[in-house]
Amino acid sequence: MTELRLNRALYPRAAVDAAVLVYAPYGALEVVEEQAHWVVRVTAASRDRERRIAGQLGNYSLGLSATSPAESRP
């Protein structure tokens, strides 16, 4: 299992949820809420695949966070 820790001050929940929805077909994804982070747990067939899914998911949610209107950001 690989953990992706996305800071709640930089990644809105909506962006994380949208990214999880996109990458859900590629592996088992679980979002856990921590005090400062959204923790996305990625489980896939191999470690390399988990890394790739986590990385792409992070990029996708970063893209959504960056392009979301400033007032909707945390």
Binding site: L10, G58, T67, A70
Partner: peptide, 22 residues
């Protein structure tokens, strides 16, 4: 500023995985 960080990070997401933290 955070907007500059987002802007720079966005440019690199095609080449590498970018993760921001505070």
């Amino acid at each position: 500023p955070r907007s500059a960080l987002y802007g720079a990070a966005y440019i690199f997401i095609d080449r590498c995985f970018v993760l921001l933290d505070k």
